[in-house]
């Protein structure tokens, strides 16, 4: 096997840019400019807004009655610089979900744009129906799913305080990488309350075509919720059943 054959082997197993060659110690021109192009695309994804009324999320919004509320961040620029605002619902949003969402359910799903609305548009249409069907089959009461613009992970605490669901699942766009702007995370929390941190949450990251596929993601989310229901806890102490161990976000943290 020579280096070229080694390079061929790569393409089946990793999206990493390996065996790309070198000119001296520099990239070839095509490689250098491809990196620049991918960075440009990622920068554009960060500034895009979530849309429910048109595009790939519109049929889903229709089917599940999805609506969007805002975090306490006024706009995209403030969202990037003020994470505290992205972690709180606006006062209008608090009133809206209080009025429109059933309280005290077994499962509340929330959709957040996070740092990539493109990831939500790419993953939620496939994943959400599977997730809600599986929760329904488990016999759980399910809340009214809604979306949050300019959303950070800490929004789960507000949702927990207002609606008192047992389990909250937040589907949120991860910070775009160069390889993809379509990667989504699912954060899970048991009875989230003010001052809960990442140590109280469980995370499934890298939900995208070259990462975790939708059926696999859903079965793992459901298994985690079952474990949360059995132990009455989420976060660092919770073991992900069957295939994996404790799940936390300490070493990943790519979502806002």
């Amino acid at each position: 096997m020579d280096v070229t054959q080694l390079a061929r082997r790569v393409r089946a197993v990793t999206p990493a840019r390996i065996f790309v060659g070198r000119i001296g110690t520099s990239y070839g021109t095509a490689q250098l400019l491809a990196l620049r192009a991918d960075h440009a695309a990622a920068r554009d994804a960060v500034t895009a807004n979530l849309t429910l009324t048109s595009g790939p999320l519109a049929p889903l919004a229709e089917r599940y009655g999805l609506f969007a509320v805002d975090s306490a961040a006024d706009d995209r620029t403030q969202y990037l610089r003020r994470p505290d605002r992205g972690r709180r619902l606006s006062s209008i949003a608090r009133d809206t979900i209080t009025a429109r969402c059933p309280h005290d359910t077994d499962l509340q799903v929330v959709i957040g744009d996070g740092l990539s609305a493109a990831a939500i548009e790419a993953q939620v249409p496939g994943l959400l129906p599977l997730l809600l069907d599986a929760a329904d089959q488990a016999g759980w009461s399910i809340g009214q799913t809604f979306a949050v613009n300019h959303c950070r992970v800490g929004i789960m605490n507000d949702v927990g305080e207002i609606l008192h669901p047992k389990a909250v699942v937040l589907l949120i766009g991860e910070r775009p990488g160069l390889a993809t702007a379509q990667s989504m995370s699912a954060y899970l929390a048991w009875r989230p309350r003010a001052h809960h941190t990442d140590a109280d949450r469980n995370l499934l990251s890298n939900i995208h075509p070259r990462g975790i596929a939708h059926p696999d993601a859903v079965s793992r989310i459901i298994a985690l919720i079952r474990a949360m229901r059995a132990t009455g806890a989420s976060g660092i102490t919770l073991k992900e059943p069957d295939r994996r161990g404790p799940l936390d976000s300490d070493s990943v943290g790519t979502a806002p």
Partner: peptide, 9 residues
């Protein structure tokens, strides 16, 4: 690899 961490993004 080529500066692009394909997991951490």
């Amino acid at each position: 690899p080529a500066s692009d961490d394909v997991m951490l993004g």
